[in-house]
Design a protein around this nucleic acid. Structure first.
Length: 287
DNA sequence: CTGCACGCCTGCCCGC
DNA sequence: TGCGGGCAGGCGTGCA
């Protein structure tokens, strides 16, 4: 699925079509996503004006003039695509100057201004919910998330303290959304490679200096990936349908058997399953 | 509390 | 070309 960079790429793509605009019509074509869509979602969205489009971890949050916030999660295979019609949409009425809905198009929003937003999710691990904006932070999906890795609350002192005493492998600790929010398998593998830390190292037994070095490395990987429009392995698309291209910059993820890219290293990238997830690492560089 | 296996779904890729 | 198995970016549940 989209990890933080892919979700941020999607948020940035949606913003011009959604922010400040009224949802003229909403069509729920299939309500059984990971959880059933909220009752009456189409009616609750119709006529609402979208305020800020925000992101928290891997969730896109659309504040609405109705006092509710639309929470969007892309799961493993979710896409949010923007198409542009002929501008003849009217309140409460769908117009048809857009491509016909395709398989797995589950929710369609026609926006003031003529854009159509389509949520497509083959595997239906994605989710949407509508919650009162003032109670948003208490939402079960959001309440226990750790700090944003690109935010001010994520720094060396925080991470050192959060990892202290933890016997869990650093790989699992960084995938734990309560530790830091938004990392997934790809970017944890890439960050650990850049930091020279082996994925199975016990989190609490890594020196403060190395933990401190991990923070800017995580930030750098995420920022580079965002700048590249995310990573498109199979499912991720930007809102215009374009591929991201950060996958070409992977140093270890998906490169099992390939030579290590570190200058002067003659190691070979290894794939090892750890807690049910593939870890890719260089046994020479990462200790 | 932790760690882990599992299920949720579909599509794709590989080997036969 | 077809078929079965394994794999996939997430996350909640339930168990030891």
């Amino acid at each position: 699925m989209p990890e933080l960079p892919e979700v941020e790429t999607v948020r940035r793509g949606l913003a011009p079509a959604m922010e400040g605009r009224v949802i003229l019509a909403a069509d729920v074509r299939r309500p059984d996503l990971r959880w059933p869509l909220p009752t009456g979602m189409a009616a609750r969205l119709t006529g609402a004006r979208v305020g800020l489009l925000r992101r928290r971890s891997k969730y896109i949050l659309a504040d609405l003039s109705t006092g509710e916030t639309l929470v969007i999660h892309l799961g493993m295979s979710g896409r949010m695509l923007v198409s542009h019609g002929d501008g003849r949409a009217a309140p409460g009425r769908f117009h048809h100057a857009h491509p016909a809905p395709e398989k797995h198009d589950h929710v369609v929003l026609d926006m003031e201004g003529g854009a159509r937003i389509t949520f497509n999710d083959a595997r239906r691990f994605g989710a949407m919910d509508l919650v009162p904006t003032p109670t948003l932070e208490a939402h079960p999906l959001l309440a226990r998330l750790g700090p944003e890795p690109l935010g001010n609350g994520f720094h060396a002192a925080y991470l050192t303290r959060a990892l202290a005493g933890r016997a869990t492998p650093i790989k699992a600790a960084l995938l734990d959304q309560r530790m830091v929010a938004g990392l997934g398998n790809i970017y944890v593998c890439e960050a650990l490679f850049r930091a020279g830390i082996a994925p199975w190292r016990k989190a609490g037994r890594i020196s403060a200096a190395r933990v401190g070095a991990l923070v800017p490395v995580i930030r750098a990987v995420l920022e580079e990936a965002i700048a590249a429009g995310g990573s498109s392995l199979r499912d991720h698309r930007q809102t215009g349908g374009e591929l991201g291209y950060f996958q070409h910059a992977f140093r270890v993820y998906g490169r099992a058997g390939a030579p290590c890219v570190a200058p002067g290293c003659d190691g070979v990238v290894v794939r090892r399953v750890q807690a049910g997830r593939s870890s890719f690492y260089c046994p020479r560089c990462q200790r």
